[in-house]
């Protein structure tokens, strides 16, 4: 009886976690199944779970009806260019605040933290007002330049570089190395784990962006999530199976990154919790 009571806790915990995991996982498995269903299966009552046949027909058709390649290219350019810029601006800035320590760096840090309190979505309309005033709507500059530096990235790199010992930098200075050389040859290799986590996060954030690209792009620079959502709302009779195929294509890059670098993502969240 006592043993049973001692085991009741763990059994309940396992059962609870298992049920929760199934509920969380279900929509993501379902969208993959849906992407292989025929339109009859996708709108049948009762609903179909497993399609009768697995072929790539929906994928071929959605590539015909929606410019998936163009949207995918835009998303990739937007994501990679903003991530590259964020890594450069954050690494340089964090080196300055943690290893050069000029006067005024406290104020700069307060600015970094302050800008975290202004989530990008909150400034959407003011930013749009400004970008539209410059005639930058539906251009790469209008879409990507506002995300060259983020409060999150700056603060994250700052915290990471604090963990790199100052002696490393001083030793390099005594050897006569210039600051830019120190960043390139000494700091970047040592900060690589932090740079990787920040790059990973920034990639996910930008790839998943919806509101900003929706507001600031029209045709030329539309991104994949926006394109897929508009594809759905443009239809009278919604072809859910085709939308599912486009959805799977959209999810593929972030899912691949997630499964490849799962531990890094978890670490990143632990770091966020610590600050």
């Amino acid at each position: 009886m006592r043993r049973l009571r001692r085991q009741a806790g763990p059994i309940a915990a396992h059962a609870g976690l298992a049920i929760l995991s199934l509920v969380i996982l279900f929509p993501l498995v379902y969208v993959v199944l849906l992407s292989f269903q025929t339109i009859q299966e996708a709108s049948s009552i009762p609903p179909t779970l497993i399609p009768a046949r697995f072929d790539a027909e929906n994928y071929a058709r959605v590539f015909e009806r929606l410019d998936v390649v163009g949207l995918f290219t835009n998303s990739t350019v937007y994501t990679l260019s903003t991530t590259a810029m964020v890594l450069v601006t954050s690494t340089l800035a964090a080196y300055a605040t943690t290893k050069i320590r000029m006067p005024g760096r406290r104020l700069v840090l307060a600015l970094f933290v302050g800008s975290i309190l202004v989530p990008p979505a909150v400034r959407t309309i003011p930013l749009y007002t400004m970008i539209a005033g410059w005639g930058w709507v539906d251009t790469w500059a209008g879409l990507a330049l506002p995300l060259t530096a983020t409060g999150f990235g700056l603060f994250f790199m700052n915290q990471f570089m604090l963990t790199i010992p100052d002696e490393v930098v001083e030793a390099a200075r005594i050897d006569g190395a210039g600051e830019l050389t120190i960043v390139g040859r000494v700091i970047v290799p040592l900060a690589l784990p932090g740079i990787a986590v920040l790059g990973l996060y920034n990639f996910m954030f930008r790839w998943n962006d919806y509101l900003w690209p929706l507001v600031v792009t029209r045709q030329d620079w539309q991104t994949l999530p926006v394109g897929v959502a508009l594809f759905k709302s443009s239809q009278q009779l919604i072809t859910w199976n085709l939308i599912a195929a486009a959805a799977v294509v959209t999810l593929l890059p972030v899912m691949a990154l997630f499964f490849a670098l799962r531990e890094r993502i978890m670490e990143g969240i632990a770091i966020q919790a610590g600050k």
């Binding site: 929509p27 993501l28 998943n208 919806y210 999530p225 599912a244 959805a247 959209t250 999810l251 972030v254």
Partner: peptide, 11 residues
Amino acid sequence: VVTPAIATLVW
């Protein structure tokens, strides 16, 4: 990690 717009469509 999932794209919010896409997951919302599925929902």
